[in-house]
Design a protein around this nucleic acid. Structure first.
Length: 614
RNA sequence: GCCAUCCUAGCUCAAUUGGCAGAGCAAUCGCUUCGUAAGCGAUAGGUUAUGGGUUCAAGUCCCAUGGAUGGCUCCA
């Protein structure tokens, strides 16, 4: 068991778990524990695995850890690494292990879990459970219960390519359970070379610069107010333009594809949610009911029950199906205060929602049509890097409604659709909605961070609970199937992600201000105003910059990421041209206003990313 | 919600062991009319997040509340 075996028959790409970096980071975590225990002799230690970009270790410390402790620990880690200590593995019996970790309660609990419950260090059932062997790894003075793998010797670690002060320490529940005590988690990042470390730290800095909370405020897209409440964003005029433009784009595309807009209220009587199952299955995310003259109303956490009631307002023939009801529906969900984050995690948000009612025959085709729509939308926004994830039930949990065979049918349909469209997908347990399995689209932005965006769900349960019907060709009542879907997910989160993806430099069609007219001097103010009117008349959101000299106007327009900077001076007025500079500092040759407008219209109407016609 | 850190002018930040709250940008008002990354000057802007406490004296120390940030848990 002490020999780490490379998995056989795996993919040709080396798995992270098999890589040298993984072993280095794992070993680095052990070195950190040794240094922490020297600094805090009474500390209790929990677990500490390698993670993406680094590692962590959880501790129960006798006092809060401070920045200067971390610096000392980091220094000591370098010494330990330079001590060239071997990592020595040995198998231990249960008794030996208990004696070894007699004063480490978390380790004893791990041993209990491994030996009795066949549980791994995270408290999950060990799948391949034929005989659990306990092993330890020791370097220098520190020995840890660990299954490895590690490097052979600390000389394989680079003392100049790691950091434990790059991130704040964090609280983390023992075994990830919020009922357990909170431990102190120290994060580290470790690389093979100091250049790699620098690159990584640079990437973090880049992400910070792009953060939509910073960029969104600079561009005047949105604001939060303590008086309105946390997690409740206010869209400022420029942000509202971006959002309205996206909504219009999607609505027009959906109408083209047979969707029908509906509009429904943000609250409803509690009976609606009792029927739908949101109450009680979704009550953790819902706000307390509102008493209106003795009747209980709820702020809606989802739009589906309302759309179901729209469907129910009329009798339906199989000839009418599929019926596709769409709404940019605002919903309110309770989120714990610590979970709120900018626009990506809020308490009130708008879903680009639609509910499609189909016959069983239509399910697959309609599902495929939804997948096509989502791909179309992502493509239009220049978002090409995404994978699909099929979310199915966690078989251990009881938070789902509906019968087993119904879940199976829905899951089969989703997987079949993925196969037909050749999507690169994974299947994950526990990722389903409470009423049915779903297909999520996971997008990677320019910094390779993953975001869950669009989602499609197949639902047999709500039609059942609401007793939905259509009349079939046999003149008998049948039950339709519902598809829930949202390409953007939530407009708030989506625009947050788009802002970071584009670094605020939205494509022309989305840019809040599309053109800045920059008069060279006051002598051409009148001409500049006239030019702006002309550009506005051509349908472009245009502003004239009056303040300061030309250089200042350019600096300001650049910082606002305005796509076209239209410079106008006496020479242009005389020649009847404009001098266009792009926000990436490209200067175009002087051209007539008409040519410029024609080009910009083409760029806008094709929703091009490039600002010139290619 | 939990752990940790933080909150000074609209924004970015100063303020010595606890000793008169300041600067740049933005804003307002002048001057300047200038051809591709920030022209010059003046004015105004603050119960230092809020409420208590310690002290002769609190932006600074202590407590509570609110909010933000990094994580955990949860999630569109």
């Amino acid at each position: 068991m002490c020999i780490y075996s490379i998995s056989v028959g795996g993919s040709p790409v080396e798995r992270y778990q098999d890589s040298e970096l993984y072993r280095m980071r794992h070993s680095m975590a052990h070195v950190m524990v040794q240094a922490v225990l020297e600094q805090f002799p009474g500390a209790k230690i929990a677990i500490g695995p390698p993670i993406e970009d680094g590692f962590y270790y959880d501790f129960d410390l006798p006092r809060p850890i401070e920045e200067k402790d971390l610096k000392k620990i980091e220094k000591r880690m370098k010494e330990i690494i330079q001590g060239e200590h071997a990592f020595v593995c040995r198998e231990v019996s249960e008794e030996e292990a208990r004696a070894l970790f007699a004063d480490q309660p978390y380790k004893l609990e791990l041993i209990d879990g491994l030996v009795k419950g066949k549980l791994d260090e995270y408290g999950n059932k060990i799948k391949d459970d034929d005989g659990v062997v306990l092993t330890t790894y020791r370097q220098d003075s520190f020995e840890d219960l660990c299954r490895g793998p590690h490097v052979d010797n600390t000389r394989q670690l680079n003392p100049e390519a790691f950091s434990i002060t790059f991130k704040e320490v964090a609280g983390a529940y023992w075994r990830g359970d919020e009922n357990n005590p909170m431990l102190t988690r120290i994060y580290g990042t470790a690389w093979k070379s100091s250049e790699d470390l620098e690159d990584y730290l640079h990437r973090l800095e880049e992400a910070k610069q792009r953060d939509h909370r910073k960029v969104g405020v600079e561009l005047g897209l949105f604001a939060f107010s303590q008086k309105v409440g946390k997690g409740l964003p206010l869209w400022k005029p420029r942000g509202a333009i971006v959002r309205n433009t996206l909504e219009r784009f999607l609505q027009e595309e959906q109408i083209r594809r047979g969707y029908e807009p509906v509009i429904t209220p943000h609250i409803a009587r509690i009976e609606l949610y009792e029927t739908s199952g949101h109450y009680p299955y979704y009550s953790d995310s819902q706000y307390d009911p509102i008493d209106v003259d003795g009747e209980l109303f709820m702020l809606r956490p989802m739009n589906c029950p309302h759309h179901v009631e729209v469907y129910k307002a009329d009798p339906h023939s199989y000839r009418d199906l599929p019926i596709r009801l769409m709404e940019f529906g605002t919903v309110y969900r309770y989120e714990q205060s610590g979970e709120l984050a900018g626009l990506t995690r809020v308490r009130g948000f708008t879903v680009d929602d639609a509910h499609i009612f189909v016959t069983p025959d239509q399910l697959l085709d309609e599902f495929l049509a939804v997948v096509d729509l989502i791909q179309f939308v992502f493509n239009a926004l220049g978002m090409h890097d995404f994978d699909a994830r099929v979310g199915i039930r966690d078989p251990e949990s009881d938070k789902y409604i509906g019968e087993d065979d119904v879940w199976q049918r829905a899951t089969d349909a989703i997987i079949q659709a993925c196969e037909i469209r050749g999507l690169n997908y994974t299947v994950e347990e526990g990722e389903a909605a409470f009423y049915g399995p779903k297909l999520d689209f996971i997008f990677r932005d320019v910094l390779k961070r993953e975001w869950q965006l669009g989602t499609v769900q197949v639902d047999y349960s709500l039609p059942e609970r609401f007793e939905l019907e259509y009349i079939g060709a046999d003149n008998k009542a049948h039950r339709p199937i519902m598809i829930h879907r949202a390409p953007f997910g939530s407009l708030e989160r989506f625009i947050g992600i788009l802002t970071e993806h584009f670094y605020g430099a939205f494509p022309l069609w989305l840019a809040p201000v599309q053109m800045a007219v920059l008069p060279v001097s006051k002598k051409v103010e009148d001409e500049a105003n006239a030019l702006a009117s002309q550009l506005k008349a051509a349908g472009f959101r245009t502003e004239v910059f009056h303040r300061g000299q030309l250089g200042k106007k350019i600096a300001e327009a650049r910082s606002q990421k305005i796509p076209y900077l239209v410079v106008l001076g006496p020479r242009d007025v005389e020649a009847g041209t404009v001098s266009v500079r792009l926000r990436d500092d490209t200067e175009l040759d002087p051209m007539s206003v008409e040519d410029f407008i024609r080009m910009a219209q083409q760029v806008r109407d094709n929703r091009q990313m490039d600002l010139v016609v290619s």
